[in-house]
């Protein structure tokens, strides 16, 4: 691929637009919640920069509000975010030629949506390093910035659901999931992963749902015989 650096940056920026549409209101809601909990603005920003995990940050802030201990809060952050170990493992086969700092940039700023995009691109042979890292960095910066902005201005967009913005990320998951559903193994993996996750939420252990659903769903799909899979693997 002989594209210039800026073309790649532009691709990464373009990919980030739908993600940011979903992230900005959530980031603002996080900032607002954090302020209402009595957490300072620097702590609010630092949490976004260092922890960088949407649902975990909401969990952490509400646990702080309820006066829970640090160990319990850190354990919850770990559980809710542990699904990233699967995402990271799943991307790893494509990254053999990457430099260490590039792998750290890709993994360290990984989120669900960026993972889904990387996964589609890499599987189709598009391993544009600059575009991938641009996507991650843009999401990272905007996530932190909207958290800090929401801290002061969050009340202005307190109800993003009025504009339908609360559905931006679920819609994005739909768009990113469908391209996989041309293979029977992937359809089975998706159905099993979704069912396991729903069951775990209903059982009251929703924190583990994405991790166990992802692990179990992918395992179920492995057993579907698909002759063309081996040919496509390389």
């Amino acid at each position: 691929m002989n594209k210039s650096y800026w073309t790649s940056v532009e691709r990464g920026l373009r990919w980030s637009i739908p993600v940011l549409l979903g992230f900005a209101p959530i980031g603002a809601a996080y900032g607002l919640l954090s302020r209402q909990t009595g957490i300072g603005v620097w702590h609010t920003l630092s949490m976004s920069l260092f922890v960088f995990a949407g649902s975990s940050q909401f969990v952490a802030v509400s646990m702080l509000q309820n006066g829970m201990g640090a160990a319990a809060i850190i354990s919850s952050i770990f559980i809710v975010n542990f699904r990233h170990v699967l995402m990271s493992a799943s991307l790893s086969p494509y990254l053999a030629p990457w430099k260490t700092w590039q792998r750290v940039a890709l993994g360290g700023m990984l989120c669900d949506e960026a993972f889904a995009l990387h996964s589609l691109h890499f599987a189709s042979g598009d391993t544009d390093i600059t575009a991938a890292i641009t996507l991650n960095t843009t999401i990272y910066v905007v996530w932190a910035a909207t958290g800090a902005t929401g801290y002061y201005l969050g009340a202005l967009i307190e109800r993003p659901e009025v504009f339908g913005l609360d559905f931006a990320l679920p819609a994005m998951f739909i768009a990113l999931l469908l391209p996989y559903c041309v293979k029977r193994s992937a359809v089975l993996a998706a159905l099993c992963g979704g069912a396991v996750s729903v069951a775990l939420h209903v059982a009251g252990v929703g924190g583990w749902a994405a991790f166990i659903g992802g692990l179990a769903g992918a395992a179920a799909g492995v057993f579907v015989k698909e002759p063309e899979t081996e040919a496509e693997a390389k």
Binding site: P93, F173, C181, G193, G194, A218, G221
Partner: peptide, 15 residues
């Protein structure tokens, strides 16, 4: 194969 199926499984686990 298992690693390549994590994306659809985890996406629907979230969706």
């Amino acid at each position: 194969r298992w690693l390549s199926l994590i994306a659809p499984a985890i996406l629907s686990a979230l969706l």
